[in-house]
Write a protein that binds this DNA or RNA. Structure first.
Lengths: 231, 231
DNA sequence: ACCGAGTTTTGAACAGGTTCAAACCTTTGG
DNA sequence: CCAAAGGTTTGAACCTGTTCAAAACTCGGT
């Protein structure tokens, strides 16, 4: 799912009418956020514009920030779809990796402005929105699974131990890119794109070096480090 | 100063009385933050407890978050002092680096529990608490300066281009360790200490490899990448 | 002692996110 | 069709960060 994180699937059964109201609120909120910015859009304005009461908005979304969450969930679906098509097309490791990462940036672009708000929530260690939280397990696994596909679909040869760890490492790289992106204030997040364009070939070449005897010891120790940090 | 972030040095001349009031407010705030957490401590409570008016608290600290900065500044001084003595003692690169990082963890330990509480506030890109914010420039520079000393005081030999970039890279490594630390829920942050113990030798060995012809091209490209990301 | 120019202090008022008890509506079992 | 149970809706009230105009204080110069 390649995203900062996602909520667990909604367990609640909801009437179609209610679902519609819920959607209406999200849509209205997003429209207003995009028009006037997150901070300057008040919950009162959202409720008014959506034709519901403030209390009702809070019935569906337990906070203003949760509105953004719903937004991200939608984005996650888009990324998954787009990335899939890239992976069907490309066969080179570097192309596959950069394709997935660039897809993320492209899909995420319209939401960059809110990213910080959302990120703030996700950053709190005990928050369920944190990418490391138990609640995010599913989303995390899905994302790692996607990076496994990136590896499996390519014929790159590397240190066997490393290969096994690659999906998780690429997910970490992805988290790093997301982190960079959140803080990237350049026009159209150009710097993030540059980062991906230049970092991916580096990763590619570095990964290939891991079969050299001279580097192999280093890699083994790194894998050992990673292993000893698993909880 | 090795810290998450800090304000630039206060340029304002202040009467001793005023300075005392200011200190009083910070002290009170920190006491209440530790007792009840950042979010649940109100500005009113802080002002009351400190025996000043709300407005007065805002005269000294332009926002609740700025109170935290003052706190960080204090911690930064402690770290700087402690780390200094480590650097006077050690001469090996690995020892110097790990000494500085471990010092940070030790000094920061008492605050770990509530670090997460307000880490989320620092995570927001436009927050002055963000380690990348303009307000943190001074603290960032100080910290980088400290890592420059880590390099300069050791005789490690590495790729010249890399050497120039090392202070900044080590600061980034430090930020990574801080990030890990914030999420580290192990007893006494043991995992963070493990991370430092194992990662530092890896960094050491990797850095030494950068003079090999085979790796040199890689390093140059990495430096080029870093350079092109500077704003 | 008095004046004026800062500096410091005050608290009422404001803004906007959030809560909650009550009212309203829909569905289900009998 | 009725009533109970549960789902949905309401908006006034609450909470807390922040602002601001006015008051109080400090101190060098006369």
């Amino acid at each position: 799912m390649i995203t900062l994180t996602t909520v667990p699937p909604e367990p609640v059964t909801r009437s179609p009418k209610a679902e519609q109201t819920r959607q209406n609120i999200v849509d209205t909120a997003m429209r207003l956020f995009r028009a006037g910015g997150y901070d300057r859009t008040t919950m009162r304005a959202i409720a008014d514009e959506a034709g519901v009461s403030i209390g009702n908005a809070y019935y569906y979304f337990s906070s203003k920030e949760h509105l953004i969450q719903a937004f991200y969930d939608r984005m996650a679906r888009d990324v998954a779809t787009e990335a899939e098509s890239v992976l069907d097309r490309e066969t080179e490791f570097a192309e596959r990796l950069s394709g997935v990462l660039q897809t993320w940036v492209t899909v995420a672009e319209p939401y960059h402005e809110f990213a910080g708000k959302f990120f703030k929530n996700a950053a709190e260690p005990q928050s369920p929105l944190s990418p490391f939280s138990p609640e995010s397990q599913q989303a995390r696994d899905d994302a790692i699974q996607m990076f496994r596909k990136v590896m499996d679909g390519s014929s790159i040869k590397l240190n066997p131990g490393l290969r096994a760890a690659m999906p998780e490492l690429l997910w970490l790289l992805h988290m790093g890119v997301v982190l960079f992106w959140v803080y990237d204030d350049s026009e159209d997040q150009r710097r993030t794109r540059t980062l991906i364009d230049k970092a991916v070939p580096l990763v590619d070449r570095t990964a290939r070096l891991t079969r050299l005897p001279l580097v192999r010891g280093l890699v083994d120790d790194m894998l050992d480090l990673i292993n000893s940090l698993k909880r």
